[in-house]
């Protein structure tokens, strides 16, 4: 799988097969947008559920863009390594700053 997308061996019929996949992703993204907007008008039990639903759909859409449009589904390990490190640190940045609110001393 790793070789599928290396720079120099793109047989042309291979690409035309991809084109159909790109169109599929495009439609899925449009649909996802409609679902997100619609879901935000459904009064779930609490606002937190609405947030979770919207973020879940956004994550799915983002994954589609990253995996198919940005060819991450078949990329080299060097790139994966960069992204894993980045995501770990980004999560650290999010969770640890938010952790400041876990203590009642705050504010």
């Amino acid at each position: 799988m790793n070789n599928e997308h290396s720079a120099d061996d793109h047989p042309h019929h291979d690409i035309s097969k991809h084109v159909r996949r790109y169109m599929g992703v495009f439609l899925a993204l449009l649909l996802g947008t409609v679902v997100t907007v619609a879901a935000s008008y459904i009064p779930f039990k609490s606002n937190e559920v609405n947030i979770a639903v919207a973020l879940a759909i956004a994550t799915v859409k983002a994954t589609l863009v990253a995996a198919i449009f940005m060819h991450l589904s078949a990329e080299r390990w060097t790139i994966y390594r960069f992204l894993i490190i980045t995501v770990v640190f980004a999560i650290g940045l999010f969770s640890l700053t938010a952790l400041a609110f876990s203590d009642h001393i705050h504010r």
Binding site: L96, L99, A100, S102, D103, H104, I105, H106
Partner: peptide, 10 residues
């Protein structure tokens, strides 16, 4: 800064 004991311990 008063960010709390839990964060400080971490």
């Amino acid at each position: 800064t008063g960010m709390g004991a839990r964060v400080s311990s971490f």
